[in-house]
Every structure is written in structure tokens, then in C-alpha cells.
């Protein structure tokens, strides 16, 4: 026992069982994770990390009040050293995170990795996806240019149509009947306080469950080889993180973020549209009567949230027919079609 005196001093005062802490590093992962699907699970976490760091930097200069919000974004983008880069990284990491989460969900869906006993892992994963959409919605509104202001107005208006609790939800988000200075303050609070807290809790729950159950093996994969989490898997994740950062920095340098027109509550721009990831629900709500749209959207989200049990029910109904996979694939194709339709219109 010839440990370094400093280490001995520290171990005496902070008696952490280091051997216990090292155990997760030695976790053995199924060999299929070496394949293409490996990056889908870790990527959203890496992108979330990028957003936490860049988001903290942005809060140093962003001013969440209607008079100064747009000006502070302008200052960050045009005047601050590397402000344009930080803003671009934050914005585009968010967009990539939604894509990465969606692809990860498709992978889990197709391989049916959500089945018993991993149902709650899926539920927390869905919660992460919804929270990420919440980040997108609140973050977009903070720019406070004309389009984001009106997207916020229209988006929150929809909540007012939700049966029974719509009025309360509208007030909760807006801080009053209309989009006002209270709204921006609340969206800022949600974006940097409420949502990150919920996100960290959901990520922790998701990762703890993944660790407790172990990574699901692929159906029909008879290979029993494994590889170590450390250093092989960690090195892969590091390479992915570097590729993502590299891509984001190169993109930001080639196409630095621009600025729209400052928000003007008295002027409605001709083409109000939400960000692309809300295109499917936006198009759907334009296609059907409002109440039908709201109920079906809520039903779709609820169905996705509790999909492991829905799928199990369908399996009991028609054993071996994989009704769930067919139904899910049809739902995915329909969502994609709505997105493309709205994008092209």
C-alpha cells in the first residue's frame, strides 16, 4: 500500500469505494453495438452536453425582455467575440438532437428493444423526446424576431383549444391572456430552468434503467461476444462527439447564423410557420377540424408513450403477426408524409 500521500489524505476524508465506482466502466456490451446503431443512443446526450455549455454562455448576454431580447441576440450574433459560433452551435445541436433522438427511437422501435422488462426505459425515452421538442419551442421564441414571435402566438393559441384545461394551460405558458413580457420571461424560465431540470431527471432515469437491464440484445442475434464499455465504447463515443463538434463548427463558419426582423405585435408576417420538427402536427391541424386534430394528436402521443403495452396488447390479439410493427411503420410513414407535405407547401 504505497499510495500517494495526497490520495491517502483524500481517501481518508472522502471514503468513496473507488472499486465500486469503476464497476460501470467494466460493463460488457453486446457486440452488435459495434455496428452503425451505436451512435444513436449516445449522440443525443453528446448534443445535449453541447447545448448545456453553449446555453450557459448565451445566458451571459441574452436579455429576456421584449424591449431588449432581439437586440441582445443581435449583439451576440454580430458583436460578441465568437458569439455567432456559440449561437450556431446551440441552435444546430438542438436540431441535430431531435433528429438523433428520432432515429434512436426508430432503431429501438424496429428492434422491439422496448419489450418487457424495458417498458419504462422507453417511457423515459419518449419523455426525453417530448422535452426536447419543448426546448425547441421555447428556445425558438426567445430569439424574438417577427417569425418566432408569431409562431409563439399561434403555438400557444392552439393550447387554448385543448378541452377542459386549455384556458389554464394558456395562462400558465403566457402569464396572461396574450403574448406579453410575462410570456418571454416564462419561456426563458422554462428553457433554462424547468425543462433542463426535467431533462436531467429523465436522462438519469433512462440511463440508470439501461444500466440496470443491460443493453437489449437483438432478436435472433446468436452471437455471445461482448466488448468493454471502457475504453472501446468510450473511445467510439469520443470520436462521435468530435465528428459532431467538427461538423457544427465547419457549418457555423460556412453559414453563420443570421437575424430576422425584430418582432412587431402590430404586424403579422404573411407566412407564419413553426420550426420544421412541428411540421407534421401543424399540417395535421390544418387538415382536420381543430378539436379532432387536438384529440388525435394527444392520442398519437399517448399511444407512443405507452407503446410497449400497446404492442404487447396487439401481440396478444394476433400472435406472431407483428401488428404493432406494421401499425408503427404506417404511423411513421404518415408523420413523414405530413412533414414533407408542409415543407414543400
Amino acid at each position: 500500500m504505497s499510495a500517494h500521500p495526497l490520495r491517502r489524505w483524500l481517501a481518508e476524508r472522502v471514503p468513496i469505494p473507488m472499486e465500486e465506482l469503476r464497476k460501470p466502466l467494466r460493463e460488457e456490451l453486446p457486440v452488435h453495438l459495434r455496428g452503425w446503431a451505436v451512435w444513436l443512443g449516445g449522440t443525443p446526450l453528446i448534443l445535449f452536453g453541447i447545448q448545456v455549455v453553449t446555453g450557459i454562455l448565451l445566458t451571459f448576454y441574452y436579455r429576456p425582455d421584449p424591449v431588449r431580447a432581439f437586440e441582445s441576440v443581435r449583439r451576440i450574433t454580430l458583436a460578441m467575440r465568437f458569439g455567432w459560433l456559440i449561437r450556431s452551435l446551440h441552435q444546430n445541436a438542438g436540431q441535430l438532437m431531435i433528429i438523433a433522438l428520432f432515429l434512436h427511437m426508430i432503431r429501438v422501435f424496429v428492434t422491439r428493444a422496448y419489450r418487457r422488462p424495458r417498458e419504462l426505459t422507453w417511457v423515459f425515452g419518449m419523455a426525453l423526446f417530448l422535452l426536447t421538442l419543448g426546448f425547441g419551442f421555447t428556445g425558438y421564441s426567445l430569439v424574438y424576431d417577427s417569425l418566432s414571435y408569431w409562431a409563439t402566438t399561434v403555438g400557444t393559441n392552439l393550447l387554448g383549444d385543448v378541452p377542459v384545461v386549455g384556458h389554464q394551460l394558456l395562462w400558465l405558458l403566457r402569464g396572461g391572456p396574450d403574448v406579453s413580457p410575462n410570456t418571454l420571461a416564462r419561456f426563458y424560465n422554462f428553457h433554462i430552468g424547468v425543462l433542463p431540470t426535467l431533462m436531467v431527471l429523465a436522462i438519469t432515469a433512462h440511463l440508470v434503467l439501461v444500466r440496470l437491464h443491460g443493453v437489449a440484445r437483438l432478436e435472433g442475434d446468436r452471437r455471445h461476444e461482448t466488448y468493454d464499455f471502457f475504453p472501446e465504447h468510450v473511445l467510439r463515443e469520443a470520436a462521435i462527439a468530435l465528428v459532431l463538434l467538427l461538423g457544427l463548427v465547419v457549418y457555423a463558419s460556412a453559414r453563420p447564423p443570421g437575424l430576422g426582423v425584430p418582432a412587431d405585435p402590430t404586424f403579422t408576417p404573411p407566412h407564419i410557420r413553426p420550426e420544421w420538427y412541428f411540421f407534421p402536427s401543424y399540417r395535421w391541424l390544418k387538415l382536420v377540424p381543430m378539436q379532432v386534430g387536438i384529440w388525435t394528436s394527444a392520442g398519437f402521443v399517448g399511444c407512443m408513450m405507452f407503446w410497449p403495452w400497446v404492442d404487447a396488447g396487439l401481440e396478444r390479439l394476433a400472435p406472431g403477426r407483428r401488428l404493432g410493427t406494421w401499425l408503427g411503420s404506417a404511423g411513421f410513414a404518415f408523420t413523414l408524409a405530413l412533414l414533407v407535405w408542409e415543407a414543400l407547401s
Binding site: 467510439r236 467538427l246 463548427v249 463558419s253 453563420p256
Partner: peptide, 23 residues
């Protein structure tokens, strides 16, 4: 893999230097 990570780190540094000139 370590070599890949090292090369990517160098590429990221180069990209940040280029971003410096844009800045």
C-alpha cells in the same frame, strides 16, 4: 481508435482556428 480520436481532435483545432479568422 485512439489514433482516430487524436486525428479528429487535430481537425477540430484546425476548424476552430479557421473559425477564428471568420470571427
Amino acid at each position: 481508435q485512439k489514433l482516430v480520436v487524436a486525428l479528429l481532435s487535430l481537425a477540430l483545432v484546425a476548424a476552430l482556428v479557421a473559425a477564428g479568422s471568420v470571427d
